[in-house]
Amino acid sequence: DVAKAIINLAVYGKAQNRSYERLALLVDTVGPRLSGSKNLEKAIQIMYQNLQQDGLEKVHLEPVRIPHWERGEESAVMLEPRIHKIAILGLGSSIGTPPEGITAEVLVVTSFDELQRRASEARGKIVVYNQPYINYSRTVQYRTQGAVEAAKVGALASLIRSVASFSIYSPHTGIQEYQDGVPKIPTACITVEDAEMMSRMASHGIKIVIQLKMGAKTYPDTDSFNTVAEITGSKYPEQVVLVSGHLDSWDVGQGAMDDGGGAFISWEALSLIKDLGLRPKRTLRLVLWTAEEQGGVGAFQYYQLHKVNISNYSLVMESDAGTFLPTGLQFTGSEKARAIMEEVMSLLQPLNITQVLSHGEGTDINFWIQAGVPGASLLDDLYKYFFFHHSHGDTMTVMDPKQMNVAAAVWAVVSYVVADMEEMLPRS
């Protein structure tokens, strides 16, 4: 009755609320953990100690060179048709403005197509994108590519409607990318409310002028670490089931939801298994990635270092889409492996969480999945996720200890059972 024992300990027993309480202690005291920041390195050192004190095995840090970008002071003010202070968050990797800022007329567009049609109007202006929110993966293209597309048509800066499914005047940051051969222009996100307001103004032919000031700077890459701990396998210790979340966050809020929750239910999975005195046949390895938000930098380094052992990886798991109430497991792998995962998930019938869906991919495990290793991501109730994502609102207040208990139970049962099976998951 291993699965029932894990569920009972996590959801009803002594371990209930533990992952929430551990997470709160870290994010309340350390705060946000931006790549390259002292906070992130402090969090890594604390986690290193935590994992050792928890009695996990082979606790160690694997060095990674990571980006160091800081937003500095930033502001935006609408000067025409009226004075209005605009809430902004500079986007990760953006350059800053000159100290006096950029003051320019605004061109509002709702899509890249409209920008192309109105390219002749964009030169010398600040392009404001008021793209509708469709879903994250589609709409986020405006955040990542908005500055490049605006620069191609001669814009001085770009302001992008936050990629959020709901807003109470919250700007949401995130990474953006420049392109070789295209001038770099400052770029920031604005609130849904301001993007829509400027769109309405523009539709009435009203001239809008904004002064944008951003003190963003990119510094040389810095040293960081992926944080690793294990329960070493009893029979096939060289074989691995990897469970993971990322420890870094953006520099706003507390990074409690993204991805403190994922990191801490991954730790909790190993804690639960250890507390029950279980040791699976193959190794359960916890990895807390660094610099995921900068584009999976720590995960790439880990893959480069460990891909030589790829044939020994049975399953790679990542939780990076919230730890609200789980609804199932997203899985990528062969049909045979999927059939096995469906059997594994049937053990979670007591929690009524048995679905195995497609698309197990995640930023930090994609390198392995693309190379043929089965991969799984936790699927949970995403309704609120993009309310808070990359915003000042990503704090412990968003988190629910009971939902984290259930998420940790799912994570522990899946990782343990796959690690304890006589054979590795079959590959395609």
Partner: peptide
């Protein structure tokens, strides 16, 4: 034999199902 690198298992799916069910 634990390693199943080529997706070729020496065990039947029924055997694997029973193994997983024993964890329930």
């Amino acid at each position: 034999k634990a390693i199943c690198k080529n997706g070729i298992s020496k065990r039947t799916f029924e055997e694997i199902k029973e193994e997983i069910a024993s964890c329930g």
